[in-house]
Write a protein that binds this DNA or RNA. Structure first.
Length: 802
RNA sequence: GCGAGAGUGGUGGAACUGGCAGACACGCUAGGUUCAGGACCUAGUGCCUUCACCGGUGUGAGGGUUCAAAUCCCUCCUCUCGCACCA
C-alpha cells in the first residue's frame, strides 16, 4: 500500500510486456470482425515530435484499444513517410547522407512513440524509402503509365527560387514556397503529370458514399470545383480559325463585347504576322511570366492587359465585332484559356472594361450596370438577347445551349478546377521514376521484373541550378541500354514527389513484407477499407485526394475491391503553444513530449492531450493543466485504499452506469474531454464516500484504460484482477440502473429560476403542478397573482406564467 | 472577395433535438498537514450589492421570435483556418 505511483517504471514494464506478448499484433483471421484504424504516418523530421503529434495518435489509440475490448481484430499500424525535401535539405546542410539522416530520425521517432505506449502493431512497420516498399510505388506508376494516366507535358510550372525545384500548385502557399518561403515564379518545363482530372467526377461522387467530416467533404468538393456551362466557338475575322471559350453563363452571350485570352494562349504566335503590336504583346507576356504567383494574386488588384491589334472576333449570335485582348486575369490552365467577356454581368470583366473603356451592354435586367456588374441568376430577366429575350437565366441557359449545339457553334460542357498532378521533383531523395528514354523507342517503361529501380548511392546530391536532378550527373546510372531495342539510352532522372509513397501506404500495411505483390489479395480483402482515418485538415486537398485517386485507379485495375479507401475521416484541431500561437521553433514555444513525460509520465501526457479541450478545435498547451492530469492519476492510484464491499453499491450504481454510457458514447464521438471529465466526477464521488467496491473499481479501470493504459494495467494487476485488462471486455451499462426514484425540478416564474423541488420520478404533470404550487418560495415569487399558464418539461422544469 | 469554424468566468473548456449557464480542470483565496519546498486534504471562487440571507445582472454588440435563447432568425463586430481573377 505504501507503493507510490511511479510512472517511469510502470510504463516501461507494460510496454515491454505488450511487446513481448505481441498483444497488439494484428493477425489475419477471417473468422473475426476486423477494424482498421489509421493515423497519418509521420514524416521523421530532425526535430522529433512535439506535443501536437500525440493528439491524433492518442485519440486513435483510444479507439483502437476500445475496439479490441469490444472484440474486434484491430489493425493499428505505423510507418514512415521518409522521402522528401526537409531530409534532403538537412543532409546537404550537415553533409550527411539522406539515408543516414532518415535512419537517425526514424530511430528517434520510434523511441518517442514507444515511450508513449501506443498500441501500434510494430511488426508491420513500413518505410517509404525502403526499396522493398518503393518497388510497389514504382509498380503503381508503371500501371498508371500503361493506362495512359501518366504523361509528360510542357507546362508552365511553379519554380521555387529557393529550393530550385518545381512545385505542385498545392505547395505554393500565398505565392511563396510552402517549405522554404522563397518566392515562386513560372517556368516552362517538361513534366511528368498524372491525369487525376480524368477521375474528377468520380472523386466528387465518391464523397457521397463515405463518412467524412463535413469540412473535409466541402473542401474536397471546392478543390475539385465542378462547374457546368458551355463551350462556344467565336470566329476570328478573315480566317477559318475558331477561338473557343468556356462559360458558365451562355445566357449572357449577347452581352459579350470583347474577348480575352491568357498570355500563353497559342493564338498569339499563330497570328504573329497579323498582330500589329506584336512587340507590345510579347513584352506583356514576358512580364506576366516573370510575375511571381504572389504578385499575380495578392498585389495585382488592378487589371492589366493589351489588345491584340489586327485580330477581331465575331460574336456568333449577333455577328458583332469583338476586339481580342490578352490579360493575365485569364488562366491558360482553366477552361480553354480564353473567355468571352460580358462586362455587364461579370465583376472581373466589368472592372477590365471600365479600365480600358470597352463597351458594357445589359442583357439581364434587374441591376444597374453603370455602377457594377449585375450577377444575380435568380431574379434577372434576359433583355437585348434575340431569341432568349424575356426568359429567366436558368431557362435562357438551356435554350441558348440547345441552339448553339444545333448550329454547331458549341456544346454543353462541365469543367473542373482540379488540375493534373505534377508528378516530378528535380531532387535526389525520392523514388526514381522507372522509365528509360531511347532515341529510337522514345519513352520505355522498365520491365516489372527489373523493379525496384534502386536509388543509387551518390556523393554529391546538391541540386543543380540547371533545374536538373542530381541523378543526371551519375553517368554510370543514367546510361543504360534501352530495355526494348538495346541501343544506348538514358534513364529518367526526375524523382517522384513526396506525395507518392503516402498515396497507397495504408494498403501495404495489410501485408507489409510481401515480395511478390503489393499485398496479397486475401490480406487486402480482409483489412481494407480503412474503417477510421484521423489526420490533419491540411492534408484534405493533397494527400487525401491523391490517395483516393490512386485507390480508385487500383480498384479499376482489380487490385482492391472497394472504390474508396477510407470509410470514415476525422480531423484533430491544432495544439497551439502556451502563448496561443502556432507551435514553431521560430516562435520558441515548442513543447517536447520527452520533457513532459520525464516530469509527469506518458499516461498523464496522453490524458492531458485528450482533456485539453475539444478534440477538433485548436487549443493552447498548458503545462500547469498537464500537471493537473498527473494529479488526477495520483487520485486514481490512491483508490486502492478505498476498496471495500462487494458487487455494485447502491449509492454509486446510478453514477457508475451513467459513466459507462457517457464514456462509451463520448469516445465514439471523439468527445474525449467530457469522457475524462465524467470519470473525474465519478472519482470525486468515490472520494466523498471514501469507498469503492472491487467490481466498480475494475469497471472504472477498463473505461480509463484506452486513454491511460499503463497505470490501469498496473492497478488491475496489483489489486488482483484476473488476467490483464487487454483481455477483458468493454463494460455494458444497465438501462435500469440509470432510472432514479426522485428528480429535482427547477421552478421558474416568468422564465426566472425561483425554486427547486424534489418530485417522484413517476409523477404526473398534475402531481408536479400541485407540488409546485404548494412550494413556499414559488408562492412568494408569484406574489399572489393568478396563474395564467403552467408549462411542464418532464423531469426538468416548470415555468409558471402569471 | 468566397467558403468553413469560432467568440461563454482570471485561464482551458462544459451545456442533449431551445428547458436550472459555467460540468470537469487550471489558477487564485483561506484553513489543515509537512523540517522547508513540493505534494496532499478541506472549504470558497462569473460579476454587482450584502456581514449574511435576499436581490440584481450575465454567454462578442444590437434587435427579434418564444412561457423560456449560449442555442433559432435578422443586422453588425472580432479571431482562426482553407481557397483565391476558375470565366
Amino acid at each position: 500500500m505504501a507503493k507510490t505511483y511511479d510512472p517511469k517504471n510502470i510504463e516501461k514494464k507494460w510496454q515491454d510486456h505488450w511487446e513481448r506478448e505481441g498483444v497488439f499484433q494484428a493477425k489475419l483471421d477471417p473468422s473475426r470482425p476486423k477494424y482498421y484504424t489509421l493515423i497519418e504516418f509521420p514524416y521523421p523530421s530532425a526535430e522529433g515530435l512535439h506535443v501536437g503529434h500525440p493528439l491524433s495518435y492518442t485519440a486513435m489509440d483510444t479507439i483502437s484499444r476500445k475496439r479490441r475490448l469490444e472484440g474486434y481484430n484491430v489493425l493499428f499500424p505505423i510507418g514512415w513517410d521518409a522521402f522528401g525535401l526537409p531530409t534532403e535539405n538537412y543532409a546537404i546542410k550537415h553533409k550527411i547522407h539522406p539515408r543516414a539522416v532518415t535512419e537517425k530520425n526514424v530511430a528517434n521517432f520510434t523511441g518517442q512513440l514507444k515511450m508513449l505506449g501506443f498500441s501500434f502493431d510494430w511488426s508491420r512497420e513500413i518505410n517509404t524509402t525502403d526499396p522493398g516498399y518503393y518497388r510497389w510505388t514504382q509498380w503503381i506508376f508503371l500501371k498508371l503509365l500503361e493506362h495512359g494516366l501518366a504523361y509528360k507535358a510542357e507546362m508552365p510550372v511553379n519554380w521555387c527560387t529557393g529550393c530550385q525545384v518545381v512545385l505542385a500548385n498545392e505547395e505554393v502557399v500565398e505565392g511563396v514556397c510552402e517549405r522554404c518561403g522563397a518566392s515562386v515564379t513560372h517556368r516552362n518545363k517538361e513534366q511528368w503529370m498524372l491525369k487525376i482530372t480524368a477521375y474528377a467526377q468520380r472523386l466528387l461522387d465518391g464523397l457521397d458514399t463515405v463518412d467524412f467530416i463535413p469540412q473535409a467533404r466541402t473542401q474536397q468538393r471546392n478543390w475539385i470545383g465542378r462547374s457546368e456551362g458551355a463551350e462556344v466557338d467565336f470566329f476570328v475575322k478573315d480566317s477559318d480559325r475558331k477561338l473557343r471559350v468556356f462559360t458558365t453563363r451562355p445566357d449572357t452571350l449577347y452581352g459579350a463585347t470583347y474577348m480575352v485570352v491568357a498570355p500563353e494562349h497559342p493564338i498569339i504566335e499563330e497570328y504573329r504576322d497579323r498582330i500589329v503590336n506584336l512587340d507590345e504583346v510579347r513584352a506583356y507576356r514576358e512580364q506576366a511570366a516573370r510575375k511571381s504567383e504572389f504578385e499575380r494574386t495578392e498585389l495585382s488588384t488592378e487589371k492589366t492587359g493589351v489588345e491584340l491589334k489586327g485580330l477581331t472576333a465575331t460574336n456568333p449570335v449577333n455577328q458583332k465585332d469583338m476586339p481580342i485582348w490578352v490579360s493575365d486575369y485569364v488562366m491558360m490552365t482553366y477552361g480553354t484559356g480564353a473567355i468571352m467577356a460580358v462586362p455587364g454581368h461579370d465583376n472581373r470583366d466589368w472592372e477590365f472594361a471600365t479600365k480600358f473603356g470597352l463597351p458594357i451592354v445589359e442583357v439581364v435586367s434587374g441591376g444597374d450596370i453603370a455602377k457594377e456588374a449585375y450577377t444575380d441568376i435568380e431574379e434577372g430577366i434576359l433583355v437585348n438577347s434575340g431569341l432568349i429575350n424575356g426568359l429567366k437565366v436558368s431557362e435562357a441557359k438551356k435554350k441558348i445551349t440547345r441552339y448553339l449545339v444545333e448550329q454547331g457553334l458549341g456544346e454543353a460542357k462541365v469543367n473542373y478546377k482540379l488540375r493534373d498532378w505534377v508528378f516530378a521533383r528535380q531532387r535526389y531523395w525520392g523514388e526514381p521514376i522507372p522509365v528509360v528514354w531511347c532515341d529510337r523507342c522514345g519513352c520505355v517503361p522498365l520491365p516489372e521484373e527489373e523493379l525496384p529501380l534502386v536509388l543509387p548511392d551518390i556523393e554529391n546530391y546538391l541540386p543543380g541550378d540547371t533545374g536538373e536532378s542530381p541523378l543526371a550527373a551519375i553517368e554510370e546510372w543514367v546510361n543504360v541500354p534501352c530495355p526494348k531495342c538495346g541501343a544506348p539510352a538514358k534513364r529518367e532522372t526526375d524523382t517522384m514527389p513526396q506525395w507518392a509513397g503516402s498515396s497507397w501506404y495504408f494498403l501495404r500495411y495489410a501485408d507489409p513484407y510481401n515480395a511478390e505483390e503489393l499485398a496479397s489479395q486475401e490480406a487486402l480483402d480482409y483489412w481494407l477499407p480503412v474503417d477510421w482515418y484521423n489526420g490533419g485538415m491540411e492534408h484534405t486537398t493533397l494527400h487525401l485526394l491523391y490517395s483516393r485517386f490512386w485507390h480508385l485507379f487500383l480498384h479499376d485495375i482489380g487490385v482492391v475491391k472497394a472504390p474508396e479507401p477510407y470509410q470514415k475521416r476525422t480531423s484533430q484541431g491544432m495544439v497551439l503553444g502556451e502563448n496561443n500561437e502556432k507551435m514553431s521553433k521560430s516562435r520558441g514555444n515548442v513543447i517536447n513530449p520527452d520533457e513532459v513525460v520525464a516530469v509527469i509520465g506518458a499516461d498523464a501526457l496522453r490524458l492531458y492531450e485528450l482533456f485539453m479541450g475539444a478534440f477538433d478545435q485548436p487549443k493552447p498547451w498548458s503545462t500547469e493543466g498537464a500537471k493537473g492530469c498527473r494529479r488526477f492519476l495520483e487520485r486514481v492510484w490512491r483508490l486502492r485504499g478505498m476498496l471495500r464491499g462487494v458487487g455494485e453499491s447502491e449509492d454509486l450504481r446510478g453514477a457508475l452506469h451513467a459513466m459507462i454510457k457517457k464514456v462509451s458514447e463520448d469516445y465514439e464521438r471523439m468527445k474525449y474531454n467530457t469522457a475524462v471529465a465524467t470519470m473525474m466526477a465519478f472519482i470525486n464521488d468515490v472520494y466523498a464516500k471514501d469507498a469503492i467496491t472491487p467490481d466498480e473499481f475494475r469497471i472504472l479501470l477498463i473505461l480509463l484504460n484506452p486513454v491511460v493504459p499503463h497505470i490501469t494495467e498496473e492497478l488491475w494487476e496489483i489489486t488482483g484482477g484476473q488476467g490483464h485488462i487487454y483481455q477483458q471486455s468493454w463494460p455494458q451499462y444497465d438501462e435500469g440502473a440509470l432510472a432514479v426514484d426522485e428528480v429535482e425540478i427547477a421552478i421558474q416564474v416568468l422564465g426566472k429560476l425561483k425554486s427547486r423541488i424534489l418530485v417522484p420520478a413517476a409523477a404526473t404533470e398534475a402531481q408536479v403542478r400541485e407540488l409546485a404550487l404548494a412550494d413556499e418560495k414559488t408562492l412568494a415569487a408569484m406574489g399572489g397573482k393568478p396563474l395564467r399558464r403552467f408549462i411542464y418539461i418532464p423531469g426538468r422544469l416548470v415555468n409558471i406564467v402569471i
